[in-house]
């Protein structure tokens, strides 16, 4: 199975969050390209919109929320990420 490219993987994160940082580092180490949105750096209107986006896929609205296609992983769960991305 080919490695997902950047358009398939979205990470909703916070710039100060350690679990988000761990997830970013892990994806990078594994050579996975991803689209990252650091929600804490967004201004009000964009932030509200993105939060609604996150809530729709992760009702807890917590960080990090990793989206790969129609699959969602909440928190830095290395094994689940490996399995989902066939790493």
């Amino acid at each position: 199975m080919p490695m997902p490219d950047k358009t398939d993987v979205t990470l909703y994160a916070l710039s100060t969050c350690i679990h988000c940082k761990n997830t970013k580092e892990f994806l990078t180490q594994c050579g996975v390209g991803y689209h990252c949105i650091d929600v804490d750096t967004l201004e009000a209107p964009d932030r509200k919109k993105i939060l609604q986006e996150i809530k729709a896929i992760n009702p807890e609205c917590s960080f990090p929320t990793l989206v790969v296609g129609d699959k969602v992983i909440v928190g830095f769960k290395k094994e689940e990420i490996q399995e989902l991305l066939n790493l």
């Binding site: 916070l14 710039s15 100060t16 969050c17 350690i18 960080f63």
Partner: peptide
Amino acid sequence: VNKARYGYMSCPCRLA
């Protein structure tokens, strides 16, 4: 960082 941003030390793993 959060102290500088918001004036209080909110949890770094949560959105303030």
